[in-house]
Nucleic acid binder design. Structure first.
Lengths: 163, 163
DNA sequence: GTTTTGTTGCAATATTGTTGCTGATGCTAT
DNA sequence: ATAGCATCAGCAACAATATTGCAACAAAAC
């Protein structure tokens, strides 16, 4: 067990509060508007946890802001990711996913159903990052993607194989 | 420079040939059909290199097989990935990308424009993979995603900032 | 309060991926 | 070679996801 207090679900209220404060601060620093919609989108994403898609956030947000439009949520998430309050997650699928964890952590990825779950391990933290300046990239952090097959996909294949 | 002979573009003919042979072998082993379309899709992807999207492969394939249908390409790529002849790449965007390299390598990812390029580094290979059996995953390999901002996105931000 | 300017909501549209079905074709056994 | 047959390709329609342009609105600064 590596993160007993956050078993891949959402974030508790205190943590959400401080993230919201961080957001408002960054927003001001950059001279951007801190709207109700953006705050609600952020909070919904934090409550959802677990790499939500834009549409999952939209659905969650509608409980509190019924009239919100889809492009608003899409733009808000993009905006939040720009600021680094959340980030885009790297995944093998074809639907954008956001990551509400901003600390160093890694992912277990199923290449069959595209689901992925968080994974933290001291041995994967503290990697020495090679110099990439020659390629023009300015790096902020890294993630290790442990790729394979999840349990339910393995069972599925086994069943089909035995048919 | 880490891979002078494959600067992120396609694969030479010899390498393509042996990948095709691998494909045909795996196909037979699994009792699946090795069709013209699938072979052409595989070869197009190998020539393209550089994590093509399904539509990029489609476009490339149409040069040789003008009548090919879009679902055919989509299904062929999925099929090739199932067999492990190519694989799905993890990326921050919303369009599926395939990776024609099957050896251990890593990615430099731009979180602004979602582009990513290959990166190999001995220091990132040979990581000790922690035990993940408790989570039900059976791992095949891993990738390190070095996340940041590419040169052109940095220049874009700088320009906008100075406006 | 007024102004300024960035943001929202809407509608339309684009892009990407999927499904069901029929006819075609690769593979195997003969 | 050929026949049989299961798999696959092509088609058309559809579904899901994301984006754009613009008028109306509202947050922040004065």
């Amino acid at each position: 067990m590596h993160q007993p207090d956050r078993p891949d679900g959402g974030m508790d209220e205190a943590a959400r509060g401080s993230r919201l404060e961080l957001y408002e601060r960054l927003c001001r620093e950059r001279g951007m508007r801190c709207t109700v919609q953006r705050r609600v989108v952020l909070e919904a994403a934090l409550i959802l946890g677990n790499h939500p898609t834009a549409d999952q956030v939209l659905e969650a947000v509608r409980d509190r802001l019924p009239g919100i439009a889809r492009p608003t949520v899409y733009r808000a998430l993009e905006h939040l990711a720009d600021l680094g309050v959340i980030s885009k997650a790297c995944h093998p699928g074809h639907v954008a996913r956001y990551d509400t964890r901003t600390d160093l952590h890694h992912h277990l990825v199923c290449l069959h159903c595209n689901q992925f779950v968080d994974f933290t391990s001291p041995s994967l933290d503290g990697l020495e990052i090679p110099d990439t300046s020659g390629l023009g990239f300015e790096l902020s952090d890294y993630r290790v993607q442990l790729r394979g097959t999840c349990r339910s996909c393995r069972e599925k294949v086994r069943k089909e194989g035995s048919t």
